[in-house]
Each structure stands twice: as structure tokens, then as C-alpha cells.
């Protein structure tokens, strides 16, 4: 079953080509890492997929009615915006908005969904705290919990683990992996190639405004791709503890 189908997505912003004819299909049960250097178009691709910016080509999500789309895919923007000093539980419950009819109050099911999200992200102790007074990393986890509370088949997350401590980076990637095992799919843009190599079931590499590689981490993180699109060389090895990827030098 396909949760997202992009065909020939092209985006031009201010007469500058950002993406050219990118096609991508995501089925159920995948954790897809979207990688590429700064400015490669990762955020633009995800926003175009959601229909948040005008794009040429077809996106299965952008074609949906806004409410239906909000039930099909949740979006975690890169900017961690929390405008008002609300408490953690209230913020996470905002994820239930797409499931509520006009004037329908938050119900038992919505509270249960928020509770599951809080539990998954290990935020139960922080539930009554004011979000804006938490540390940056804690805020990031609260915002991920909001996306989980939306309980959509697909999650698109823009650099969700940037700024988290190592333990929470790993546990967040594990949570995404669990979701994938449950039949959801997650598309994350990510700069930490080591974590991407270990946890993602599939990587998509953007470079030169286009998709240049798509496959299991081993096929994508080749020495050629790393040199051409990231300007680095790296050590990549399958070990008893799983794949280990470490960037070593800048090249070129």
C-alpha cells in the first residue's frame, strides 16, 4: 500500500530551481531517511509533498482535501515554534485537531492518543510543565509527541533529532522504527548519517536539485555519492553491533 506517491515534483522559488522532477513512493512500514547537503531541497520536497508550497507534478497528499490530508500525514516543521506558554499535555493534545469536528470537544479517545504519545516520548513527568520554559531538546521531544498524537499512517519530520542529546536521538529513531514496524511510515530529513545508516530502512539522497540515489543505506552511502554530494569520505562497516558509519575527512 502506498502512503505517499510523488511523481515528477518540480519546485521553482523566486525563479530559482530548487527541485527538478523528483519522484518518490513510500509504502507502509518504512523509515525513510531524506539526506543531502544544506540547501539540497529536503525541506522543500517535504513541504511540496504536503501541498504547503506550489509545485509542478503530482503528490498524492497535496491532492487531498486539507482535513483528509491532516488525517493521512502529520508534519513536523524544522522551526520549533511554540508561540504561547501552554503546558506539555495541552500542546501534545493539539495533534488531535484534525480528528475533531467543528465544535467537538476533546474526547476520551483523543486524551488516550495524547497519553500514548507522551508515554512513547517519555514525557509523562513533564506533562504539567510549561513548554516554553523547557530546554530546547525537551521542547523538540514535546513537538515530536504532538506529531505522534496525530496518529497518522505517515509522518513527515524535518530534522526531528537535531539538538537532542545522544540518548534521545537514538530513542527517537527507535520510536520511528517501532512505528514503521507497526505499519506506519516515517520520512525524516536527517544530517546525522551514522544514525541514518543504523536506523533507516531506506535512504533517499537529494543532490543537484534531483534525487540521485534511493535504496538501503549501503547502496546510497557509497564513496562516490559521499564525495560528490557531501564532499566527505567515511568509514562504513557492518559489525556485530549493526552498521557503523563515521565520516572521516573532507575531500575536494
Amino acid at each position: 500500500m502506498s502512503l505517499l506517491r510523488l511523481s515528477d515534483i518540480s519546485v521553482t522559488l523566486r525563479q530559482r530551481t530548487v527541485l527538478e522532477r523528483v519522484s518518490l513512493e513510500i509504502g507502509a512500514g518504512e523509515l525513510v531517511g531524506l539526506i543531502g547537503a544544506n540547501g539540497a531541497g529536503k525541506t522543500t520536497l517535504m513541504r511540496a509533498a504536503l501541498g504547503l508550497i506550489p509545485a509542478q507534478g503530482d503528490s498524492s497528499l497535496a491532492q487531498m482535501a486539507p482535513r483528509a490530508r491532516a488525517k493521512a500525514a502529520a508534519w513536523l516543521p524544522q522551526a520549533r515554534e511554540v508561540s504561547w506558554p501552554v503546558d506539555v499535555e495541552t500542546l501534545v493534545t493539539l495533534g488531535r485537531i484534525p480528528h475533531l469536528g467543528t465544535g467537538q470537544p476533546v474526547g476520551e479517545m483523543d486524551r488516550a492518543a495524547a497519553e500514548r504519545a507522551l508515554d512513547r516520548m517519555g514525557l509523562k513527568e513533564l506533562r504539567a510543565r510549561t513548554v516554553t520554559r523547557l530546554s530546547g531538546g525537551e521542547q523538540a521531544r514535546v513537538l515530536i509527541a504532538r506529531v505522534l498524537a496525530q496518529e497518522t499512517p505517515l509522518i513527515l519530520a524535518d530534522e526531528p533529532i537535531a539538538g537532542l542529546d545522544p540518548a534521545h536521538q537514538i530513542s527517537t529513531m527507535r520510536i520511528f522504527r517501532e512505528l514503521a514496524a507497526e505499519g506506519h511510515s516515517v520520512l525524516v530529513s536527517i544530517h546525522d548519517l551514522g544514525l541514518a545508516a543504523r536506523h533507516c530502512t531506506r535512504l533517499v539522497l537529494l543532490g543537484g536539485h534531483a534525487k540521485v540515489a534511493d535504496g538501503v543505506p549501503r547502496q546510497v552511502l557509497t564513496p562516490d555519492n559521499l564525495r560528490d554530494h557531501f564532499g566527505i569520505c567515511a568509514h562504513f562497516e557492518e559489525t556485530a553491533q549493526g552498521p557503523i558509519f563515521q565520516a572521516t575527512e573532507v575531500v575536494g
Binding site: 504547503l52 491532516a70 488525517k71 515554534e81 493539539l94 485537531i97 484534525p98 475533531l100 467543528t102
Partner: peptide
Amino acid sequence: GSLGRSLDALTLGEDAAEAMGIG
């Protein structure tokens, strides 16, 4: 008076609110 839910969603920014189905 009918803006309540939309304004709640906007707490997370315009992008997130729009992706939650708010026009």
C-alpha cells in the same frame, strides 16, 4: 468566536497549522 481551534493550532506556527488542516 469560531476561530478557537484554528488559533490553538497556530500556536505551532503557520506551517504546522496548515498541515493540520487549518485553512
